[in-house]
Design a binder for these strands. Structure first.
Length: 272
DNA sequence: CTGATTTGACCACG
DNA sequence: CGTGGTCAAATCAG
């Protein structure tokens, strides 16, 4: 595409910032065991990730054309919907109580889910599916989840769980967890922690355009980094920014073994 | 026949 | 006003 070298340049800048974040995260992991100085490290991680996102936003726009105009499915079906009566009492949740996003190779997790919607997400290659617990009505279970394929790997699902199962005894518990690639948990109450990619961007980079395509390099990693820091802060109750609750550091991620160079060498193939 | 899924409309939010 | 989350009628599948 011609702009290969420019791409390398902003990748280098991005890489620098992310390596900072990596180093800070590594130290954070150490500090978490001693229990002091977490706040400043979290700040460093957030700062580095924020800069990385700014770089992505400013320079990384060449990626992800996402040209799915898909105008091919104009089925000859006649309009079957007439105007519905005005829906009253429709309430949308203000903020999710808890959000937890995982990357999994399957959207099966052992729970019983009922699909209630699907949307094409602006700027995303794949539609997002919406599920709620099958026990919503008989047990009032408020758990919902959103499932979307990640953009760089069709075989990996990004599954966001919202709310908690209040039907835990209903024989729907999974035998064992899904094959998570990455998992993190956060508390998104109030002004709290972003859990979805886009919310994360808005949180970290203020006045960020909603139509971002920065996710082509790291679909979920930036959100993940922020959430790692936030979750750590949350768990140890060291900042007033994030509300505290009982959340677990649930991730299979080791900052000491994660190498950005590997990611970039792969991403280099992607960003043509 | 019954329950699950699909799909377009409705509506909240930024 | 655009986008995303939810609703619910129509449709599909067992």
């Amino acid at each position: 595409m011609g702009s290969r070298e420019e791409g390398n340049r902003w990748q280098m800048k991005l890489k620098e910032e992310l390596i900072k974040a990596q180093q800070s995260a590594t130290r954070l992991m150490e500090v978490l065991h001693s229990g002091s100085g977490v706040e400043s490290l979290v700040d460093q991680v957030l700062s580095a990730v924020s800069k990385a996102l700014v770089i992505l936003d400013a320079d990384g726009k060449a990626a992800a054309p996402l040209g799915d105009e898909h105008g091919t499915e104009i089925s000859g079906l006649q309009k079957k919907k007439t105007l519905l009566p005005r829906r009253i009492g429709y309430r949308r949740r203000a903020h999710p109580y808890t959000c937890r996003t995982i990357l999994a190779e399957t959207n099966e997790d052992g729970y019983g889910w009922r699909k209630y919607g699907q949307k094409d997400i602006h700027g995303a290659a794949h539609p997002r599916s919406y599920y709620r617990c099958i026990h919503k009505h008989d047990r009032g279970c408020q758990a919902t989840r959103q499932v979307q394929k990640t953009e760089d790997d069709d075989s990996v699902f990004a599954i966001t769980y919202m709310g908690e199962h209040t039907c835990a005894d209903a024989a729907t518990l999974p035998v064992q967890g899904p094959p998570c690639v990455i998992s993190f948990e956060s508390n998104a109450a109030g002004q709290g922690v972003p859990s979805l990619k886009q919310e994360c961007d808005e949180e970290v980079v203020s006045s960020h355009s909603p139509a971002d395509d920065s996710s082509s390099v790291f679909p979920d990693f930036s959100a993940f980094m922020v959430s790692v820091a936030a979750t750590a802060a949350d768990q140890y109750d060291v900042t007033s920014v994030f509300r505290s609750s009982t959340s677990s550091l649930d991730m299979e991620f080791d900052p000491e073994t994660f190498k950005f160079d590997d990611v970039f060498s792969q991403g280099d193939e992607y960003i043509g």
